[in-house]
Design a protein around this nucleic acid. Sequence first.
DNA 1: TTAGATATGTTGCTTAATGAACATTTTAAA
DNA 2: TTTAAAATGTTCATTAAGCAACATATCTAA
Lengths: 179, 179
Amino acid sequence: MDRRVKKSRQALFDAFTKLMVEHPFQKLSIAMVTKEADVNRGTFYLHFKDKFELREQCIDMHLTQLMTSCAGGIKEEFTSKKAMLTTFDYLNDNAAFYKVMLTGEDNTFFRKRMEEILKVGLSDFIESKTIKDPIDKEIMIQATISAGAGLIEWWLTTKTDLEPSYLVERFWGIINVER
Amino acid sequence: MDRRVKKSRQALFDAFTKLMVEHPFQKLSIAMVTKEADVNRGTFYLHFKDKFELREQCIDMHLTQLMTSCAGGIKEEFTSKKAMLTTFDYLNDNAAFYKVMLTGEDNTFFRKRMEEILKVGLSDFIESKTIKDPIDKEIMIQATISAGAGLIEWWLTTKTDLEPSYLVERFWGIINVER
DNA sequence: TTAGATATGTTGCTTAATGAACATTTTAAA
DNA sequence: TTTAAAATGTTCATTAAGCAACATATCTAA
């Protein structure tokens, strides 16, 4: 993709992410976003139809990054835990945005997409476990997803300033209990 | 100035500033800089003749910012001290770069420009003091410049991780002794 | 309700930046 | 010293982004 396209889109995503933390979505204007992004207003329309499309694509961008940070380290050995830490670090860095997206009014789209992503990320992890029975494996996956999603949501919304590493340590312990 | 020009130039300045901390100037290639800046190599030549010109303009950019941070707060009341803190904060943020530029081989241009800038910044400050005799005033200016330059150089090159606010406090005390 | 301001889409034209190619020149290693 | 790799400086056609202007549309306060 052309460098310029990447930069413009990224600038708009960054601006949207920042502004969403400070203002309700409904109050955001395209002019506001383009000003923050330091791009011409016309440039916006080269990439998005309206602010709803921007939001959708911005969410997708975030969740794709989240997924990448999950799957990214899998190749290396003993990195599942490390990959998980990377993920939690990413979440932590964008905590304000995720919190808004999780607790805001129009959060259905976000929650659904987030669970899909989580499923992909955690399934890979579960695969590595040698659970023979397919039903048992599915149960394990579902339980882990729910646990992960719930933990993340609790963490981001209550925001007790818990260190990502601490969270990972506990979560790791929970999902790796010998059964 | 066209937005695109500003961004390209800034990207190249940032890249150069970053790379100068890690490599000697002589080892820097234009290809390296443009890659770090994430701009097309051809774009470089739209703005600079060679890497020497980039260095020169990059230094000027930094020192102009330094000067601005000196003069910036003067308008408000009681802000000379605040302006000074802003300046020291800026220096601190770019400590690595300034250190290189101060201690590197080709530092003559940098040192000369830096003293010019300092003189402008500190002269304004000295003006506010009611020293009648022009000779005495000039003495005060020269002494203050030398003290400031020396202090900054010592601070940046030895880098004992001293807080900018601490430095400002001391320097403020030194140049404001009742005489 | 109305008037003034602000936001929205869209346009035409201009320009900076892009990627790819090319012939040199420089650098570094065999 | 020779040779391959990397860096340079330049060209070209293409395209994204820029700016300004415009007519609507929406919001907000008098």
